[in-house]
């Protein structure tokens, strides 16, 4: 099919790429890769309807299309704006975009507790990366920050609403991945919160995936909470025979112990194969898993800064001993 379809040409930050009609600017940029990819806090390619909310992926369209070369009057969200033939997009090369993005980061951070030193997400947090790249080191916000009580939503998941940036990813995940949706957004405006109406438990075989899709530390794994900083653990690709999911996961080891299990994330932090609760929370023995080898993490995170993979061959015999 793709051979017969005409391809659309789009230029992002001066790099040209040909994509299928209907592709969004963000996905076109991801085809190019590297620096031209706008950051995304709420868009998640496998979740239908996600995107458009966090406004971090705003880009400037300096030329609408070949047919209608007028620039778009406002900045547009790259995650849900489809490309047109001959479109020219400015991401990092536009000052307007960088200014707006800095504004969005500032807005996201004014009510964020910035408790990174005690947050389990630290080191693999999208908001941390975003703030590091686009934020300022000081804040102009001088008021009390919004806080919520921590809520246990089920046996394995802790909801720390104070850290939430309301990306809606977990709501879409629960909606689209599981049979019934048990949580959603309550209230309005900056009082909006993720909640299970009248503090119900989230019970579903796949509900653990909301932890993986959460860009910040609002949803954390109770079996791993406060056990270790992520950069002290060693991610290993592993798999097991599982009745309900693919069984392909990443186990995060502390020595010979499995500290936690997550799904495999790609370079944009997105999970392609969701795993079930049993694999995630209950299989915490090394013997449960067949370990394939070190996991390559190519996102700009603290974990990848360790470059432990280089030494991996030396460790391999050790792994096989057990």
């Amino acid at each position: 099919m793709s051979e017969t379809n005409p391809k659309f040409k789009v230029t992002i930050d001066g790099v040209e790429v040909e994509v299928d009609p209907g592709t969004t600017i963000l996905n076109a940029a991801r085809l190019i890769g590297g620096d031209v990819v706008p950051p995304a806090m709420c868009y998640y390619s496998s979740l239908q309807g996600s995107g458009g909310k966090c406004r971090t992926c705003l880009v400037e369209v300096s030329k609408g299309s070949e047919k209608d070369p007028r620039p778009m009057p406002k900045l547009v969200v790259s995650c849900s704006t489809p490309i047109m033939d001959g479109m020219e997009v400015k991401n990092k090369s536009s000052e307007k975009v960088m200014d707006a993005r800095a504004g969005v980061v500032e807005m996201l951070l004014i009510n964020h507790p910035l408790d990174c030193p005690i947050c389990d997400q630290a080191g693999e947090c999208d908001l941390q990366n975003l703030a590091y790249e686009h934020g300022k080191s000081t804040t102009r916000y001088e008021f009390e920050r919004r806080t919520f009580d921590k809520v246990d939503i089920g046996e394995y998941i802790k909801l720390h609403m104070t850290r939430c940036i309301l990306c809606y990813r977990c709501v879409y995940t629960a909606n689209q991945l599981t049979d019934q949706r048990e949580h959603g957004i309550l209230n309005r405006g900056d009082a909006a919160e993720i909640g299970t109406f009248i503090e119900k438990n989230l019970k579903n075989e796949f509900i653990g995936n909301v932890i993986d899709v959460c860009p910040v530390g609002a949803l954390t794994d109770k079996t791993f909470r406060f056990r270790s900083r992520v950069w002290y653990t060693k991610p290993m690709d592993a798999h097991r025979d599982c009745k309900c999911c693919s069984g392909k996961a990443v186990v995060w080891m502390i020595g010979d112990e499995v500290a936690r299990v997550t799904a495999r994330k790609d370079q944009y932090g997105e999970v392609k194969e969701f795993i079930c609760n049993e694999c995630r929370f209950e299989k915490k023995e090394k013997s449960d898993w067949t370990i394939e080898g070190p996991r390559h993490i190519d996102r700009n995170s603290v974990i990848s800064a360790n470059h432990y993979e280089v030494e991996a061959p030396a460790h391999t015999p050790l792994l096989n001993k057990a």
């Binding site: 309005r188 900056d190 909006a192």
Partner: peptide
């Protein structure tokens, strides 16, 4: 506007409250 913001997108959700304060 702070009271009526739906809370979906970040600039409006956080910015309206900030301006009000």
């Amino acid at each position: 506007y702070h009271h009526e913001s739906c809370g979906q997108c970040s600039p409006c959700r956080e910015g309206t409250g900030w301006m009000e304060k």
